[in-house]
Nucleic acid binder design. Structure first.
Lengths: 155, 155
DNA sequence: TATTTAGTTCATAATTTTCAGAACCAAATA
DNA sequence: TATTTGGTTCTGAAAATTATGAACTAAATA
């Protein structure tokens, strides 16, 4: 079994990208796994390769992988007569992912609307600002699909 | 001193909005303070009113307020002959805030670029997908200021 | 000067998150 | 049947986060 290794430079990239992912609230181990899948020369890695390369425990690896599978960030293939799973980053999904990300940004809109509805008339300036925010969030949400189209047509 | 109170419905909105804010990684107490500032009938609240309405300790209130002041999410005014500070949500800043939020979304671009540079030529499809992501992120980043302009002209 | 007000700071307690290690399991192989 | 492989699950420990309460401070007031 040929040992899979990553370089020092790659290790640093895994950490950097991992930390970036952490900002979204995902647990550290899962972030490292995801980052490794992006940085690694091999696009397909086994459970053992992930565990070994990252130097984390079996249970941490298992937990992280299953989290990422559930979150649809990872997928795996199998090969006939081979019980191992070969994991890979589901990056082909990036368009859907980014659109989802953006609409999550705008998802505070309805709540702000609800809040604005119950506000007293007296705080007019405040309410108006809130109304503007809501309007922009709605606009943004409607605009999201066009952004992708615009980018595609520009290429 | 007239007691400041919020209704049960408002309390629920504070929790809802608070939880929303928590998703961005801010600590719970600060999220509640921020949410209260948005939901409350009064747009200006004192330290004591915040502490009392949220039922949190002095130190938690102090920490949360200072965090929000540093993050530029809160500001305060003072009144002559009054040692209290009157805090309010800095929501007039919302445009800048949202633009910052969006560019933070695209800030992974340079790192992905660095990663893509060191990838082997052999994983062509993977690299191409990464290149596409980067391209879209760059496009998006350039597009952000226009979004606001477009919205403003549409109003 | 003594007390009150409006907070800040510190020690520490409670909670949550995260991970490791061991035990376990099911399928495949010897 | 015994062992190996490829994991999963459970217990608990370590670490990080978060909040409390008490002590403190500086300014204002009595």
């Amino acid at each position: 079994m040929a040992e899979f290794k990553i370089t020092q430079a790659q290790k640093e990239l895994v950490e950097k990208l991992g930390v970036f992912y952490e900002k979204s609230g995902m647990q550290p181990a899962a972030c490292r796994v995801m980052a490794l899948m992006i940085v690694s020369d091999q696009t397909e890695l086994t459970f053992e390769e992930i565990l070994h390369t990252l130097g984390i425990s079996k249970s941490a690896t298992s937990g992280a992988i299953n989290l990422l599978l559930t979150a649809n960030r990872l997928e795996y293939i199998t090969r006939p007569g081979d019980r191992k799973r070969y994991f890979r980053a589901k990056i082909l999904n990036w368009k859907v992912d980014m659109l989802q990300n953006m609409s999550q940004m705008t998802s505070i809109g309805p709540l702000l609307k609800e809040i604005n509805k119950q506000r007293p008339k007296s705080t007019k300036e405040f309410n108006n600002t809130l109304t503007e925010m809501i309007s922009f969030l709605e606009f943004l949400n409607a605009e999201i699909p066009f952004l992708l189209k615009k980018w595609e047509s520009k290429k």
